[in-house]
Nucleic acid binder design. Structure first.
Lengths: 163, 163
DNA sequence: CGGGCACATATGGGATCGCATGGGATTTAA
DNA sequence: TTAAATCCCATGCGATCCCATATGTGCCCG
């Protein structure tokens, strides 16, 4: 198994360190990057995205699909490369979250790690709780639609989406 | 890893010296250029571009794509090579930014180093902050193009605030 | 079936190392 | 000789490493 799954919540200590959940660590190791991971602010939420070598390749691929010296590429380069940080994992499986990243996700005392397959996200625990509640209620609705066997399109709330 | 990633801000001291971020230095060393780097004003921004051997090759490649003796090539040659300087790195990992380069990017007290993969840029910190904000908002739009795969996200714009 | 032992993980704190930065000394060029 | 560039060393802060402790979980043995 080599995917990030399920969620964990760990504390940030006085030095700004956080333990990476052991299962995630195992995935990272298998992903080819010994001792480090890539991390950047999520584009569409107050959270951080992180992953290993595979994720980095994915980003590279995204960029290399655009011609050199094009505007789109410049923008994306700045937004992605500029915000990406390589966080090294210490001997105890911890990383240090730099100030600029912590601010982006309102992280202070603890971090909730959310597995998303190829990558995982880091949320402020309460913020994630909100997100999750929202997601659940939507799933309820979706299930009813399936159960009913028909689509009574009264209101397709176009909001949230769960990964 | 052998790419320039993430951003760092260092000070210019009284003698005009700046420390190159250690991670960037490591990339340069691996790039085959011991003790120096190529630097020139960005073509489309008030910043400086810099890199090692690989960047130099890339510029060569760019030029060789244009026919010899064409106007474009001449202009580009002048624009690129004409302003290129080889900056030597001293024993402590610092470079001295010559006056003519400094004015091109309005550098005075500090420099923000921005990793862009094959090369990196040097910005006046406040100017880069502007640039980055712009890039982020544009990416919000561009991102939807990539999202074709399946994430029908809403975009709870609860971002802003902070910094 | 229950108690306790061993292992793994998370967390905290102290010690060490590297990097950025500043200042002085020494060399080089005009 | 003067000014400027280069080299060398000192220092402070932050990052990294290492070890100790706590908490919990599964397993083995009684």
């Amino acid at each position: 198994m080599d995917r990030f799954v399920s969620t964990f919540t760990n504390k940030i200590d006085a030095k700004g360190r956080v333990s990476i959940p052991a299962p995630f660590r195992a995935v990272l190791e298998r992903d080819g990057y010994p001792g480090g991971l890539y991390c950047y602010p999520s584009l569409d939420a107050a959270a951080l995205d992180a992953g290993g070598e595979r994720l980095a390749k994915k980003i590279d691929g995204l960029l290399s699909g655009l011609p050199d010296y094009s505007d789109e590429r410049d923008e994306l380069s700045v937004a992605l490369y500029g915000d990406v940080q390589v966080l090294s994992i210490d001997g105890d499986g911890r990383i240090v979250l730099p100030e600029n990243l912590r601010v982006r996700a309102n992280l202070d005392a603890a971090v909730t790690f959310v597995g998303l397959g190829d990558k995982f996200q880091m949320w402020e625990p309460k913020a994630f709780e909100e997100r999750r509640k929202e997601a659940r209620s939507k799933v309820q609705v979706t299930r009813k639609l399936f159960a009913a066997g028909g689509r009574s399109s009264d209101d397709d709330g176009n909001e949230g989406a769960r990964e």
